[in-house]
Simulated scan of single mutants.
Amino acid sequence: MTFLWIFEFLLVAGVFFADVLPLRDVLLTIEPKVVQRSSHSTLRCSYDLRNNTLYSVKWYRGRYEFYRYTPSDSPKTKVFPVRGINVDVHNSNSTQVVLRDIDFIVSGNFSCEVTSDGPQFLTGIDTKVMSVVQLPEDLPTIRVEGEPLDYGDILRANCSCPPSRPRATLTFLLNNYTVARSEPLSPRQHQELAWSDLSLELELSEFHFNSGRLILQCIAEMEDIYREEAVLKLGSVRDPVPERVSAFSDATSISSEAALRLVVIINILLMLT
């Protein structure tokens, strides 16, 4: 009897606790999560109401609510003023919010909070991070001094990339081998609009030459949305020089028969004169 009573108690308790569990599978996605300044992004919120009806979906930037969807209200949507947040109301609903004209100040945490209707009023929340960037307006450039280069020489080069936020990460490759890379950015540098520069000073050995050739690349990257490169063929004293050829070796060999015909024509011309 005691075991039966314990079993019934656990069964009832299990049902009770299942009813007060928070909402499952509340998932926020930001597309794109790395946004170019002045462009737009779509925040999507998926959730499982567990056979309950929806009471509300609230959207936050940090701790500030900026959009709410409540199906029982009229109108169903409300927009709250938050600095930098521009909601596209016509394209926002119970599962997504579209933001337009996004500026740097919008970077940070976004949250989607879903609540089911009573009597339980179950709630679930998910948070993701959005980054706002400004891409360089032009390609990176390379400057080199001291050409042509040979074994033992010092290769001095500089790569510059136009202003961006954050600064672009620069990488030097010599004949496809990485020879220099930008230092990681500090938190402050992530908030700056500035040029990116990388200097290279490398003593060259036979290892660095590819059949005497030197191809220098500078790759500029930012987050997952920008990758450009500059490529420069450096002057090298080890670069193979094409063999010199005479004018006769390039021309088609004249056969003996053709030469004989030429002599005959010349003799006829002399007789007519």
Rank of each mutant, 00 (worst) to 15 (best):
S249M: 09
N175A: 08
V231N: 11
E223K: 12
D250E: 08
G14W: 02
E31G: 06
S182G: 06
R61F: 00
E257F: 02
N51D: 07
S205I: 10
C161S: 15
A230C: 13
D103H: 12
V129Y: 10
L149T: 05
K33W: 04
I30L: 13
L23A: 10
T29I: 12
S255N: 04
P242E: 07
P32K: 01
N267W: 13
A157W: 06
R83N: 13
E201H: 10
T70P: 00
L200D: 08
I266W: 13
T53N: 10
K128A: 10
P71E: 05
F3M: 12
V132F: 09
R63P: 02
E192H: 06
F16K: 10
V98H: 03
W59R: 10
F121E: 05
G152R: 14
T252S: 05
L54D: 05
S160Q: 11
R188P: 01
M271C: 03
L216M: 08
Q120D: 09
L232W: 09
S186P: 01
T178L: 14
E257M: 02
F207S: 12
Y226I: 09
L170D: 06
K78M: 10
F209R: 07
Y151M: 06
S196T: 02
I105R: 01
A18M: 09
S164M: 09
D239I: 06
I85G: 00
L272G: 04
C112V: 04
V35L: 00
S131M: 08
L21W: 06
Y55L: 08
F16G: 07
Q189V: 04
Q120A: 12
C159F: 09
F66P: 00
Y67S: 03
I268E: 11
A13C: 06
A259T: 11
M130R: 03
V98M: 06
E8S: 15
P240N: 08
S107R: 03
A230H: 05
V129P: 02
V264F: 13
V35H: 06
G62F: 00
P22E: 07
N109A: 15
S253Q: 12
Y151V: 15
H208P: 02
L200A: 07
G124I: 09
F9R: 08
K78P: 00
Q134H: 05
D19V: 07
F17P: 02
S94K: 03
E183M: 15
T123K: 14
N51A: 13
P240A: 09
D153G: 03
T178S: 12
F207I: 13
D197P: 07
W59N: 01
L27G: 04
